[in-house]
């Protein structure tokens, strides 16, 4: 399969990465090279094969449903570009 320029722009939109026309066109070529490489997988007979969910056979670990950590708002926001009263600040989202 290969992608056209509109698909590249749509995927970039989904990924929230701004892409100008020139970049989109370079990216289209590169993505198609990679997708061409990936296409070999179509040769493999996968009938009746279960998809891998975990590479090591282990039972899912469970923990007690209790609070054992928290109350660290300052640590959580310590690296944010803009903070006020331990809230992340962004441009107004709702009009």
């Amino acid at each position: 399969m290969s992608v056209d320029i509109d698909t590249v722009k749509r995927v970039a939109k989904l990924a929230r990465i701004a892409l100008d026309d020139e970049k989109a066109s370079t990216m289209q070529g590169e993505l198609n090279t990679i997708l061409g490489f990936i296409d070999q997988l179509n040769e493999v007979d996968i009938d009746g094969v279960a998809p891998m969910t975990s590479v090591v056979d282990t039972a899912m670990k469970k923990r007690k449903d209790v609070v054992d950590d928290g109350d660290r708002a300052e640590d959580v926001v310590a690296n944010a570009p803009e903070v006020e009263d331990n809230f992340f600040m962004v441009a107004k989202v709702i009009e």
Partner: peptide
């Protein structure tokens, strides 16, 4: 076509 198929191939590799 892609992700599910790749995870099945991964089973075969293992």
């Amino acid at each position: 076509a892609y992700y599910l198929r790749a995870q099945k191939v991964r089973t075969l590799i293992k």
